[in-house]
Structures are given as structure tokens and as C-alpha cells.
Amino acid sequence: MELKDKVIVITGGGRGLGRAMALQVAAKGAKLALVDLDQQGLDETIGLCMELGTEARGYIANIAEEDAVTELFNDIAEDFGAIHGLVNNAGITRDGLFIKVKDGKVVSKMSLDNWNLVMDVNLTGTFLCGREAAIKMIELGCEGCIINISSISRNGNMGQTNYTATKAGVQAMAVTWAKELARYSIRAASIAPGYIGTEMVMSMKPEALEKIAAGIPAKRLGKPEEIASTVAFILENDYVNGRCIEVDGALRI
């Protein structure tokens, strides 16, 4: 896909990885529809994209709500007249042990609320956005690409039963969509980042960051721009379909 003048939707586009992705594809001439719950963050990202000479618009929407997502993609289609790409980047964590035991007694357990919250945003939100984007691509006659942001945690990570389940799920959905949507000239793929130096991660204590970096063969955290360039690669390469690209500095081999 030639990105110039293509309409790319990015959820969680107000900051972090979403902002880096937006700037990467904006620099290639793509038009941006950025989705978030943070108006200030959206405004900042939009301003940065417009400085690169492209069109960008922001949309406030809760991707876990079906009606909100349907309205969101209706609005984007009306505003831009096309949708060529979607990056399902929005996600949350609510980490905690499955069960916590002390002196042979269970003292706490992962709450159903924290399970459901992560499921609603990471898994249901990705499903809803992917579905509505595909519908609009087909209705508008657009060849397109959907990218789900998974994680190397999809293989299982202590303290993340809820998160790992969603990240395994979004990868599997991308494989399924690739098979189902190819007949409509719509591709789907996923990216599994390792530890990336977003604002949230870099706010951790220096000693914690040093310990994390020491365990990565590359001996450093990834840069948001390195995930963003992977997004651009998938969008631009029309023969990448149904695959998950791991970008983790060889943390998981």
C-alpha cells in the first residue's frame, strides 16, 4: 500500500506508541484518524501530524462500547470518505497474581472486575474496531490492512493472566481475519512488542529499568519509533498477511 493520502485509523493515538505510529505514517503522507479518550493528548498528536503537512483528526470514543465504535467508524468514513488502515493499539493493564498465597493460605485473587475491564478494552475493543473498519473498507471499496498490537506477553507472563489472554486473542483474531478478509483485499497482521520505552515505562525507577534492560539480549529497551516503523512496514508490504512480527530485542527467541 502506498501510504500517501491513505486514511489510517489509530486507536490510543493520543500518546506513547500510538503517537509514534501516527507520526511515522504522517511523514509518509497518510491522513490520520486518531482515537483516544484523552482530548489533550489527541490535540497534541494532531498538531504534530499537521506540522508534517498532512490531515489529521481526533475522535473521542470508548472502544469497549459497540454503539460508540459503530458511530466512530461512521464518522471517520463520512469525514474522510475512505478507510485504508486500522491499527488496534489501544490497551490497558490491570496486573496481579492469579492467586496470592501466604503461609499456605490464599490471601487474594485476581478480581473479576479487573479481568473484565482488560477483556473489554483489549479484546472486545479490538474486535469491535476491526469489525467496523472491515465493514467500511468493503462498503467504500477500499483495499485495506488491519494491524493488532499484541505483546510477547501473549505466551504467558506472571501477574498478567488477563493481559496475556487478550494479547494472545488479538494475535489469533488477526490470523482469522487474514483468512476471512483476503477475498475483499483486506489484510490483517499483528505486532508483538517487547519492553518499549514509552512514557509510562520510562517513569519506572531507574534500578527497575536497568534490571529489565539487563535481561534483554539487545541490552536496551525498544524505542516507540521501532514499533512505528514496523507498523509502516506492514501497511506498505501487501504480501504481509496473517503473521505476527515480534519486535523485542531477542527477549523471546
Rank of each mutant, 00 (worst) to 15 (best):
A213L: 03
F127M: 08
A189Y: 00
I212W: 06
V170P: 09
M1S: 13
A178E: 03
D103K: 12
E66T: 14
A134V: 05
E78S: 15
I227H: 01
N89G: 11
G144V: 02
R187F: 01
R220P: 08
M158R: 11
S111C: 08
G169T: 02
G41E: 01
I245C: 09
K136W: 06
N155T: 15
K219A: 06
M21P: 04
M204P: 05
H84Q: 07
D36W: 08
I245F: 13
K6A: 07
L72T: 14
I212K: 11
G96K: 03
D248G: 03
A33K: 06
D38T: 13
I234G: 08
L34T: 07
C129M: 13
Q40T: 14
A134H: 15
Y184W: 02
K102W: 02
V118Y: 12
V247S: 00
A133C: 09
G156D: 01
S150M: 00
D95C: 08
M204W: 02
V175I: 05
E139C: 08
E132C: 11
N116K: 12
S229M: 09
V170Y: 01
F127K: 04
A182W: 01
G125Q: 10
N157F: 14
R154Q: 04
L117D: 15
G159T: 15
I253M: 14
Q24G: 01
A168V: 02
L86Y: 14
K211N: 11
T70W: 06
G222N: 02
I46E: 06
R220D: 02
A174H: 10
A232T: 01
W115G: 07
N74W: 03
